[in-house]
């Protein structure tokens, strides 16, 4: 990403101004991933701040092998994983409790209309269910899924971000999707049994 590199080069030459520019330019990208990983705005803000501070301190380590956005995402994921950010400050959507959609409470009976995950999503806008399932995955699975499904990174890029081999990315994504599938399946099963 040439634009990113230009900003970075300017950053080296004119540290203060350009780092402010860098923050302005990349804050949404970093915040977006932070929010996808943490699942709530409070943690996303904290994580985003930490990412930029760490980036500032580690500017000298940046070797242009990736564009700045990817580099910042790498820091984001690493910080998230290393610090075991699993604090879910937003109310966890629980299958055992009614779900407040803003238009009144929807209970599991609504979701129980069909065992098919897609139908559940359609029935009660089950983004929250998916989000919940995603949140409940181990951080490594969650991260790789977010990077792939939400950020659209290729396997190669994910390998670089996570600093692992391509084979690891493949197997981890497969296991992550399997885990996700199992969780959704369990949700359906639990819903049906009510």
């Amino acid at each position: 990403m040439n634009l990113g590199l230009n900003i970075f080069k300017r950053n080296k030459a004119n540290e203060v101004t350009s780092f402010e520019n860098l923050v302005l330019k990349y804050q949404d990208r970093v915040y977006g991933l932070s929010y996808q990983l943490t699942g709530n705005h409070a943690d996303a803000q904290d994580l985003t701040q930490e990412v930029f501070i760490k980036a500032y301190k580690g500017l000298s380590k940046f070797r242009h092998e990736a564009d700045i956005g990817t580099w910042l995402h790498r820091i984001t994921v690493n910080l998230y994983l290393n610090e075991k950010r699993k604090v879910i400050r937003h109310p966890v959507v629980s299958l055992d409790n009614p779900i407040n959609t803003g238009d009144g409470e929807i209970t599991r009976e609504v979701a129980a209309t069909d065992g098919d995950p897609q139908d559940i999503i359609e029935a009660i806008e089950l983004k929250d269910f998916i989000k919940t399932a995603l949140r409940e995955l181990p951080e490594e699975y969650q991260s790789v899924l977010v990077l792939r499904e939400l950020q659209g990174y290729s396997y190669d890029e994910i390998a670089k971000i996570l600093d692992c081999s391509l084979g690891t990315v493949k197997s981890r994504l497969n296991r992550a999707r399997q885990a996700m599938r199992d969780k959704v399946s369990k949700m359906n099963k639990d819903t049906r049994s009510k």
């Binding site: 915040y31 897609q118 983004k127 499904e149 939400l150 999707r177 996700m180 599938r181």
Partner: peptide
Amino acid sequence: ISHAIQGLKSTVKA
């Protein structure tokens, strides 16, 4: 499920 996860994609701004 993959599509459902991708459905979570939203434009979140700082």
